[in-house]
């Protein structure tokens, strides 16, 4: 079986200092060409997972395989086929954009006739052509990330690992970044990306929800959305904390989330709940009530799933 472009993990575990278990035996099987998104709150273990899969950190137990090769024992064999972009800016600030890319091109053995064209392509691909002579540390956040991506792709890897690549980046740059990822996806590159942005997760083939070192749910974004139990009502009122307290006491309500200026209320199979909630709120002296049906998004699904874990 051709494992090219395939990412696997079996009981992958990482323990720090013999006490802290950052990743607790996770299993993964990602097919070639997929975009897999790993979502989770801070401290869930995403970065550690990616580091182990990319072969920059050794697991304490379990095994990870990319292209069929063990990432711990055969790490060096994977270097040419894997691209890795770390979470923080780890390129050379005092070198220019071009110099950074040239450096990685040389390190990855991109030479001879294809070197110049590949570097030019990289710059164009990452939309950094006009900035190629600028020092890397004076770039904006978005451009730094694009540079990181360009350097991770210079050797045209089959598999790409990205650790929160758009963290702290403005929305327009984020969109541009994902457009680039889409192009790669079309070319058949397997992409493993961790992100905290739910809207980005929607663009993945499959999503894995990670919480406290374990993957608690996995599947295409649509099916995950469906995993949310019950129907969703969006409730607006004058006094949200008080409203929350009142609504929680209602029987068929199994979850309430405060969401900015409204409450998201999850109810179980309850057509009359709408009226019930309205009545209860009015009885509690709360006014300016507005209740609407809403479609649960991945975000709600995630919060809901996580809450039920704990």
């Amino acid at each position: 079986m051709d494992h090219r472009g395939r990412i696997e993990a079996k009981q992958l575990t990482k323990r720090f200092n013999r006490k802290v278990e950052a990743v607790r035996g996770i299993d993964l099987d990602i097919a070639p060409g997929e975009i897999y998104g790993l979502i989770g709150p801070d401290g869930a273990g995403k970065t550690t997972t990616i580091r182990m899969l990319a072969g920059v950190m050794k697991p304490t137990a379990g095994v990870a395989r990319v292209n069929g090769f063990d990432t711990s024992r055969d790490a060096e064999r994977l270097r040419h086929d894997v691209g890795y972009m770390a979470q923080r800016f780890t390129l050379y600030g005092d070198l220019s954009v071009r110099e950074n890319i040239e450096f990685y091109a040389d390190i990855f053995g991109v030479r001879g006739a294809e070197r110049e064209p590949q570097i030019a392509r990289s710059l164009r691909f990452a939309r950094l052509e006009q900035f190629q002579d600028r020092a890397a540390d004076v770039l904006s956040g978005g451009m730094k990330k694009k540079l990181g991506l360009a350097c991770a792709l210079i050797h045209r890897p089959k598999v790409l690992f990205l650790d929160e690549p758009t963290n702290g980046v403005d929305p327009i740059s984020r969109r541009e970044f994902w457009d680039i990822l889409s192009e790669l996806h079309i070319r058949g590159v397997t992409i493993f990306v961790s992100t905290a942005y739910m809207d980005e997760a929607e663009r993945c083939s499959r999503v894995g929800l990670m919480y406290q070192g374990k993957i608690i749910s996995e599947g295409p974004p649509a099916s995950l959305r469906k995993m949310v139990q019950g129907d969703l009502l969006a409730v607006q009122a004058s006094d949200l904390p008080a409203a929350e307290a009142i609504i929680k006491r209602i029987d068929q309500v199994h979850e309430v989330q405060i969401y900015g200026d409204r409450l998201h209320v999850f109810v179980n199979d309850c057509p009359e709940c709408r009226a019930q909630i309205e009545a209860a709120l009015k009885a509690g002296g709360i006014d300016h009530i507005q209740i609407q049906a809403a479609i649960p998004r991945l975000e709600e699904a995630f919060i809901s799933l996580v809450t039920h874990q704990g």
């Binding site: 920059v56 691209g83 390129l91 390190i107």
Partner: peptide, 13 residues
Amino acid sequence: ELGSFETLVATPI
């Protein structure tokens, strides 16, 4: 300290 070593690890160097 600055972390550039991490990216080097992922290269064939």
